[in-house]
Simulated assay, not measured.
Amino acid sequence: MKKLVAAVLTGVLVAGTLSTGVYAKDDDKTITVAASATPHAEILEEAKPILEKEGYDLEVTVFDDYVRPNEVVESGEFDANYFQHIPYLDQFNEEKGTHLVNAGGIHYEPFGIYPGTKDSLDDLEDGDSIAVPNDTTNEARALLLLQDNGIITLKDGAGLNATVKDIAENPHNVEIVELEAAQVARVTGETAYVVLNGNYALEAGFSVGKDALAYEKSDSEAAKTYVNVIAVKEGNENSDKIKALVDVLKSDEIKDFINEKYDGAVIPFDDSADTEKADAEETDSKDTDSKDEAKEDTAEENAETTEAAEDAE
Rank of each mutant, 00 (worst) to 15 (best):
E180F: 06
K53A: 15
D256K: 00
E45R: 12
D123N: 10
G21M: 10
T30Y: 06
N102R: 05
L89C: 03
H107G: 00
E190Y: 04
A231G: 03
V14H: 12
A34Q: 09
I130W: 02
V60E: 05
P115D: 03
G264A: 07
A181W: 05
D28V: 07
N236I: 00
S120C: 04
N259E: 12
D270F: 09
D166T: 10
S36I: 11
A273C: 05
M1E: 10
L100S: 01
A303L: 13
F63A: 14
N161W: 04
E94M: 11
I167G: 06
D123A: 14
T191Q: 13
E276P: 01
G104D: 07
E175S: 10
Y66A: 12
P49V: 09
A303Q: 15
T163E: 05
G127T: 02
E307K: 08
Y193C: 01
F206V: 08
N138M: 01
H172F: 11
L58V: 05
H107M: 08
A142E: 11
D128S: 04
T61V: 13
G112F: 08
S36K: 08
L145W: 04
K118M: 08
A204L: 08
E237A: 14
V73M: 03
A103E: 08
V246Y: 04
N149A: 03
I267Q: 03
T153V: 00
E304L: 04
N173H: 14
T188F: 02
E175A: 03
V187W: 08
V246I: 04
L4Q: 08
E234H: 11
E203D: 15
L202P: 04
F92R: 14
D79R: 08
T275E: 13
D292N: 13
A204H: 10
D122Y: 03
V246W: 06
V22R: 12
N259C: 00
A37Y: 13
G157H: 07
K29I: 06
I242E: 07
T38K: 13
T30E: 12
L245C: 04
K2L: 13
S36C: 08
S19P: 00
V194G: 02
E307V: 02
I50V: 15
Y226I: 01
V60L: 09
L51M: 14
G209K: 15
F78C: 13
I230T: 04
Y193I: 01
D90I: 13
E253W: 00
N102C: 05
P115F: 00
